[in-house]
Nucleic acid binder design. Structure first.
Ligand code: ATP
Length: 679
DNA sequence: GTATCCAAGGTTTTT
DNA sequence: CCTTGGATAC
């Protein structure tokens, strides 16, 4: 039996209000996520089938965590609850309804690079000068329109006109590749749900109770998806905080949460006001900062966790010193607080900042993990191997095919490829069909035709092997690496042996990952692994989460909490980020300093008891030294909350100083917090 | 068709 | 700084 004693009154109200639309709009750390987990538990305890419950969160990590928490509450009965991200849900939908969407079974999810390449290709085709129109910008706008399910106006000039011209071609191109992009994962399901009555009816009965976490970060397309799925029952419970809306740049629409009751008629709104996470000093810092934003939903937050320790601000002379100082500080704090490593987190604005920190932390033998930003699947050799897998899985994937048809070199040159492409376009036959039957392509030497057939045979062999029910993906993938002879291909250009070894290791890692994926999901095919790759690029790190210090961007930290938080690079240029602060190239998004402020708000409110801001007077960039000054946001946090006077003088690291500084706060905390509970 | 050299540009944030 | 890809020579 689930006990609801661990909820306050408002939380209980939200949990028990199972029917009809409910919005929980409340500040950071007020227990919104806990409402969702308990709500799932409550529904199941009331006899609702776990299979009828859908809870959506923003990241795979969050979805996974939610599953763990619900299982803790009610045990394995929760296992069949649908917990996923919007994109994973969209994918699932399309894997079932692919035919209606004009796709074939094993469609591919195009990664960003390939999306961009498609845009460049199409722009060239219809005679746009890629110097005059930045393809990145065009692609960004295209994505923006899709995320709002809007059509750009073809009669407009300039960028919008260009996007309007390219959009339909881009769509057609993707369908020809039997591929979708991220936005399609939402847009196509919405389109089907809204236009195909049978599909709409079927799916709107599928999930009887739906919950959405971090609702402030949903976009218009996601709102439409939600509406379509909830059409028959309106049982939607959304929780979020407009002050934590940090994805405006990719189409998130704060209006979704602020006008929830207009989108879902008869919605009741519940506010949560007690913060269970942070000390009052931390809370006050965050509240004061966010007060500088207008047009927000005013919220009051209070905490029973005492005043707590003062915040700290440390300004180093350069990035190395900053990183070293943090590493040392973590070491002494670990001793002093008898803390576990996983109580520490280092947050930064951009992934690039992780490098220095990583070095410093590793030097002190501190166990750590870096969440996100991993470029593993962006490395050339990995992308090449994945391109092979993609083509094997989905022969329509011409992008992958072109990437690998002559890598490693097998004598199929640009001219040959051009001839095949021309013929393919002329006769509207997929590229790969012509490789199966090169005699259909005019002007090729017979020896070239032989080469093409050889390539086709090779690929077909692997395709068949991957299709077998008992296929051992890991072994097949290693065979592929061998047969293709990547070793030789990279050995030729890479004379640095160490680097060559790294590349080969990376390839082997893909094989291992593929093998273990198959072992864990014996029912899944190659297509599932590949889409998992595009949707969850952090999978590997999450596995061994254990007792380690976490490094991540402010964006990735949303929803998490740590006893000790270091918010690093607290300088103009990082926060707000230079690209957001200056007015140049203002086409992607309006200059939005308020979103940067919210980002800091998110960062500050991750801390439970000890919050440290750090910055540096100089930064090394591309080998150049840049002078830096403290972030304007520093001055928006009251001086008196800081240890010292916010001047940045390096706080002492000795045990005695720590002792003196923290003693009172520490005792106070312990009295109040007591034993930790699960959410 | 393939190998090699050099210039340019890259760093916002993520599904 | 380092990587990437495009131009050029073989
Ligand atoms: N009623 C409660 N009693 C005690 N602790 C609670 C209660 N509700 C939530 N908590 C704790 O407060 C912390 C924050 O909760 P939770 O993550 O649900 O907040 P949130 O509103 O989702 O935060 P954020 O806005 O930052 O995502 C967690 O450690 C949670 O265990």
């Amino acid at each position: 039996m689930v006990s609801f004693d661990h909820l306050n009154e408002q939380q209980r109200a939200a949990v028990f209000a199972t029917d009809g639309p409910v919005l929980v709009l409340a500040g950071a750390g007020s227990g919104k996520t806990r409402v969702i987990t308990y709500r799932i538990a409550y529904l199941i305890s009331q006899g609702v089938s776990p299979n009828d419950i859908l809870a959506l969160s923003f990241t795979n990590k969050a979805a996974k965590e939610m599953r763990e928490r619900v299982v803790e509450l009610i045990g394995s009965a929760a296992k069949t609850t649908h917990l996923s991200t919007f994109h994973a849900l969209g994918l699932r939908f399309l894997r079932e309804e692919y035919k209606s969407a004009g796709l074939s079974e094993k469609f591919t999810i195009l990664d960003e690079g390939d999306q961009l390449a498609a845009v460049v290709d199409l722009m060239r085709d219809i005679g746009y000068d890629t110097d005059e129109f930045d393809p990145k910008l065009i692609h960004g706008l295209l994505s923006h329109y899709k995320s709002r399910l809007e059509r750009p106006d073809a009669r407009r000039g300039g960028l919008e006109g260009a996007v309007a011209q390219i959009a339909p071609l881009y769509g057609r191109r993707l369908r020809a590749l039997n591929a979708v992009d991220f936005d399609d994962l939402i847009a196509l399901p919405v389109w089907l749900l809204e236009t195909d009555e049978e599909i709409g009816y079927r799916w709107s009965g599928r999930f009887k109770y739906m919950m959405v976490d971090e609702y402030q970060d949903t976009n218009l397309a996601q709102l439409r998806l939600l509406k379509a799925l909830a059409k028959r029952h309106q049982n939607v419970c959304a929780v979020g905080d407009d002050d934590q809306s940090i994805y405006g740049w990719r189409g998130a629409e704060a209006g979704n949460i602020l006008r929830f009751d207009a989108h879902f008629k008869g919605a009741q709104t519940i506010a949560l006001t007690q913060n269970y996470r942070s000390t009052n000093r931390i809370l006050r810092a965050a509240n004061k900062l966010i007060l500088n934003n207008s047009e927000r939903h005013e919220k009051s937050l209070w905490s029973e966790l005492g005043e707590g320790e003062s915040l700290r601000y440390m300004e180093a002379k350069d990035g190395d010193e900053e990183a070293k100082w943090i590493a040392t500080d973590i070491l002494s704090a670990k001793r002093h607080y008898q803390a576990d490593w996983n109580e520490f987190s280092i947050l930064y604005r951009t992934n690039a900042q992780a490098r220095v920190l990583e070095d410093a932390i590793r030097n002190q033998d501190i166990p750590y993990k870096i969440i996100g930003g991993t470029r593993f699947y962006d490395r050339k050799e990995v992308r090449d191997l994945v391109a092979y897998l993609r083509f094997i899985n989905n022969p329509w994937d011409e992008v992958a095919l072109r990437r690998i048809i002559n890598f490693p070199s097998r004598g199929i040159g640009d001219l040959t490829i051009q001839r095949i492409a021309d013929e393919s376009r002329k006769r509207d036959v997929p590229f790969f069909r012509l490789i199966e039957k090169p005699s259909d392509v005019p002007n090729l030497k017979n020896s070239t035709r032989e080469l093409l057939l050889g390539f086709h045979g090779l690929m077909k062999g692997f395709r068949d092997r991957f299709k077998q029910l008992d296929a051992d993906f890991g072994t097949i993938c290693r065979d592929l690496i061998e047969t293709i002879d990547f070793r030789n291909a990279f050995g030729r250009t890479e004379k640095n042996v160490r680097r060559l070894m790294i590349r080969l290791d990376n390839l082997d890692e893909v094989a291992s990952a593929l093998g273990s994926y198959r072992e864990q999901n014996p029912e899944s095919g190659l297509e599932d692994y590949l889409s998992m790759l595009s949707l969850d690029r952090n999978k590997d790190e999450e596995e061994e989460s254990d007792d380690v210090v976490s490094l991540m961007t402010l964006h990735s930290s949303k929803g998490l909490e740590f006893n000790h938080v270091y918010l690093v690079g607290f300088e103009e240029g990082f926060v707000p980020h230079i690209r957001q602060a200056d007015t140049s190239s203002g086409t992607t998004a309006p200059v939005d300093i308020t979103e940067e402020r919210r980002l800091i708000y998110v960062g500050l409110t991750r801390a439970r008891r000890r919050l440290t801001l750090t910055g540096s007077k100089t930064r090394l960039k591309y080998g150049r030294i840049l002078n830096r000054k403290p972030s304007r946001f520093l001055h928006e946090i009251p001086k008196e909350l800081f240890d010292g006077d916010r001047s940045g003088k390096m706080p002492e690291l000795t045990g005695a100083a720590l002792e003196k500084r923290a003693q009172n706060a520490f005792d106070e905390m312990f009295k109040i917090v007591g034993g930790d509970e699960i959410v």
